[in-house]
Design a protein around this nucleic acid. Structure first.
Lengths: 345, 345
DNA sequence: CTGTTAGCGCTTTCAT
DNA sequence: ATGAAAGCGCTAACAG
């Protein structure tokens, strides 16, 4: 194995082959309208024949921009966020091509939020902007990026900066509302909610959707709700009394798939059947839900990724922040856990 | 917001500040031994003060290499491989820094294996090499990369090319063997195995580890095994008879966490308790197992990532393929599903 | 509409 | 041990 592949074609090779100057080739690629049709056709044919693609390094150097977006990955948030992060990373990677950029991932092994990874990426000019996938309370990153003048867009609102509008998120209330509609249509009588403690924008939105839909259907009962943190065992403990409260023939809308799994586990352990004895719905559309046959509210991760990349493009082009953040509508996906007649496999 | 941050320092800025030519700065960074100690100290101080880092674009252009490794991500394999891919991606991203490179992810939305994404990355000279995380039967990628002369390293052996040695993998037999040792020590009497159909190197290794350990303990019974594909429902059907075959007080070693979850689900649905009535162990160390309190064989993903990046460095430096692939030893992590006395939470 | 010139930041000769 | 020169591939600005 020598070094790399058989030398790939450069802009000069194309220019020579097409009998034009290399600037003309550049124009054909970047400003096609400025080139005469027949010349353009000839050049395009040579580009095709030689499989020419501009060198990203040369382009970056010349344009003083990396053409890349950074994404921090860490092991911590994994199970917590219901495995959504991976799918989001995939969608971002797919979407990047359409935005004429690519995704560079980096990771920190420290378990505390830190900006060192971001600094390293910026210093090496490896990326022009960042996508933040999980901002949290006291997150130092937004302020640091603002100060450094580096564009970013966030999946979900920024906790400490309610006025920041560079985000895209799922319409949580629409999701839980759709879940309630489905449960009512299926004939479940009482519909409870197992959520996170009040105070998170995401969790509160999802609770609100449940409440409003229940009110709309005239079945809202304030007592049919409980809170727990995003972990299986605490959720199981919170689930038990709520299951009894809604009773057989009732249903529980859960704020996340992890919590829905907890409800289902408790139910199974007491010999009752999901769907038939108790309706359960989750939220996130994670593989966890699919694997356990739990109905879930699926997030449009492809749209979120695309929106965030668009926002980054705009900011890189010098445009100001949008008027407001973008809320995207999720899709309710029914599975066995919320079908009364269907045996849970 | 103007364009990017306040212009970052270049090698010229450092040279001027340190009163040397810019080549000297370059030498300080790349060939420290060629510079007089006092000059070096002065330059290093300025580098620190100005937070100078070489521009990766300029370096790439000059050195004719991207300094990046490509990793294809797709949504397909997600649940299937027990969510390991995400953790692997994280470890690769973390490890990259130590190998003086970074990871560029790309995705294809097509559901068939294809090389178009790889071609695009290579053409744009965005990466020098690739990590392949999941080669499968009839995978077109290794042959294409070989032909194009692009280095790659694979997580797991290459199905169609048993002689290819540029891989790193987990020692599956050592993992299941450790699981059996643990189960025997815990006092489970009969130990069965629920695996994948014969024919995959990975699955067969894990089965072999179970068999050899059972033989070592004098408890091998050929009938206590069954096969299923890597999906929850088929696995549940295969699990039921095997659970009866090993009986109460027995245990089942599973070829993966997904399959272990299936066994646990069937057990719970029949009112029995994991660990107490039946021991269960999985394989992969996925969040799925952790979340469901299932004992698992954890893969040393950080070591695998590091090994693969080392191999890629070597090949980029012109060194030949290693004599043989690298097998890394996994760690058995006991949880409630394989403790006889402990109540499953 | 096309060609020429210059230079992005860096490293590798080669000469001092 | 240090400095000067050249050039990686590309595109913005200008001249023709």
């Amino acid at each position: 194995m020598t070094k790399g592949a058989n030398r790939r074609a450069t802009i000069n090779d194309v220019a020579r082959a097409a009998q034009v100057s290399r600037q003309t080739v550049s124009n054909v690629v970047n400003r096609p309208d400025r080139v005469a049709p027949d010349t353009r056709a000839r050049v395009e044919a040579e580009i095709e024949r030689l499989a020419y693609r501009p060198s990203s390094a040369a382009k970056s150097l010349r344009e003083q921009r990396a053409g890349a977006v950074g994404l921090e990955l860490n092991t911590l948030g994994h199970g917590r966020r219901g495995d959504i992060i991976y799918s989001f990373t995939v969608e971002l990677s797919i979407g990047a091509r359409g935005h004429d950029c690519h995704i560079v991932t980096f990771g920190s092994d420290s378990d505390r939020p830190s900006i060192t990874g971001y600094e390293a990426m910026v210093r090496a000019r490896l990326v022009d902007a960042f996508v933040l996938a999980d901002t949290h309370h006291d997150d130092p990153r937004p302020a640091w990026l603002d100060k450094a003048g580096i564009p970013y867009a966030t999946f979900g609102r920024v906790w400490d900066a309610p006025d920041f509008t560079g985000w895209a998120d799922v319409d949580g209330a629409a999701g839980t509302s759709a879940a309630v509609d489905h449960l009512v249509a299926e004939g479940y009588s009482r519909v409870g909610f197992l959520g996170w403690p009040e105070g998170s924008a995401t969790g509160d939105d999802r609770r609100r959707g449940w409440r409003e839909a229940c009110e709309r259907h005239g079945i809202y009962r304030e007592s049919l709700q409980a809170s727990t943190i995003q972990e299986l065992h605490p959720a199981e403990e919170a689930a038990a009394p709520l299951i009894e409260a809604v009773g057989t023939g009732g249903a529980i809308v859960c704020v996340s798939d992890v919590i829905a799994l907890a409800v289902q586990q408790v139910l199974l352990q007491s010999g009752r059947r999901p769907g038939i004895d108790l309706g359960i719905t989750g939220f996130d559309g994670s593989p966890l839900a699919e694997m356990n046959d739990i109905s879930s509210v699926e997030q449009p991760l492809d749209q979120i990724a695309d929106e965030l990349l668009s926002q980054i493009s705009d900011r890189l082009a010098g445009q100001p922040l949008p008027e407001q953040g973008t809320l995207l509508t999720p899709t309710f996906v029914p599975r066995a856990s919320s079908r009364r007649g269907v045996e849970h496999a």
